[in-house]
Design a protein around this nucleic acid. Structure first.
Lengths: 192, 192
DNA sequence: AGAGCTGAGTAGACGTCGTCTACTCAACCG
DNA sequence: CGGTTGAGTAGACGACGTCTACTCAGCTCT
């Protein structure tokens, strides 16, 4: 049984669904309101501006991603390299299946990142990544933070270029798995 | 002496300038027309739709990037590793100084990538990258195309996250140089 | 019980946007 | 000199984000 859902939660939910089905351009304030069954002015009570509604949806996306990562990692004990690979796969899968949300999450021009403390939800994820890198790569140089940054950038770029279709065209690959393996090997050394 | 500039070229030019000064959201069709000193309907004769004007601007961005890369590479002879590093630096510099254009170039939701043969201008760049990788990394595995794809993804992600400010916050770095070095070393092996 | 307040949502207006269409008007051609 | 064409203008349309005035049910306080 679901707890009764207020308009605020409904707007976030409907907005997220619309984002995945219609893409970021189809998610106007009025369209979300229509799908939620309220007038176009109603969202204003909870989200003074379109930006803030979108930011709330993005925020929910980050917490959702964090939840998935954590629950996946709970099931992969042991070798930090394997855990890192699992994390990367969850990341790619999230970006593929919740594509609209993922795009929004990194469209900083649409987000009021500062005010809504969006980073509070993305920073723990990065810390987790850094910790795993430090465990998987005992060498002190370059620092784990730097490797983690490069690795994250690589994952993020992989997703972007893949979703855009550039990598399919350029490398002829049919799924990003091979590129993911190359990425992990490059940053962490060969798999055990 | 400049050849006389038609409205078509003027729209692309002021659009690009506006993009760098105001960001992607400020570049409405009407705003470009205003800055070009024509009525809001005038662009329609050359660009039937807003999308096509933006695509033309993005296309010009790709050819500009290619020009910069080629002229830089012409001045860096010898070691393919050095040439690759130079290419990467030009890429990052382009993204930083012509930030608005760079953002647009990878906003596939705003671009009619297929129709305008946008990829015709980006594909040669990737071929160049692949060739340099093949020269810099004689090992056959993983294939140069895969390494080049991963490297490009890494560069692209580096730019995105850097411009967003995420990497500054997460890694404490003050410029992306350290991450770039780590990236190149990861994908190509240690520098000579 | 009845008056007054409050909070949630409605409805209409405003300016801007992209697009469409009808028009002006100078240049050119026979 | 009449007619055509091509470049740009001007006004309309619907959709958008925002703002503001309003309704109206539910609550409290005597």
């Amino acid at each position: 049984m679901q707890a009764e859902e207020g308009l605020r939660e409904r707007l976030i939910r409907v907005g997220g669904e619309l984002l995945d089905t219609e893409g970021p351009s189809g998610v106007s304030l009025r369209e979300i309101a229509r799908h939620a069954g309220v007038s176009h002015g109603a969202p204003r009570r909870y989200f003074p501006t379109h930006l803030e509604l979108l930011s709330a949806i993005a925020r929910e996306g980050f917490t959702d991603l964090a939840t998935r990562v954590n629950s996946t990692l709970a099931g992969v004990a042991g070798d930090p390299r394997d855990r890192l690979a699992a994390l990367a796969r969850v990341y790619l899968d999230f970006a593929a299946t919740r594509r609209g949300r993922y795009e929004l999450m990194f469209r900083h021009d649409l987000l009021e990142s500062g005010h809504l403390r969006l980073r509070d939800t993305s920073l723990p994820l990065f810390r987790l990544l850094t910790d795993l890198v430090a465990q998987a790569r005992p060498e002190p140089e370059p620092p784990a933070q730097v490797v983690a940054g490069a690795l994250w950038a690589n994952l993020h770029g992989l997703v972007q270029l893949w979703n855009w279709g550039s990598l399919t065209l350029a490398t002829g690959a049919t799924d990003p798995g091979a590129l993911l393996d190359a990425t992990l090997t490059a940053h962490l050394g060969p798999a055990a």
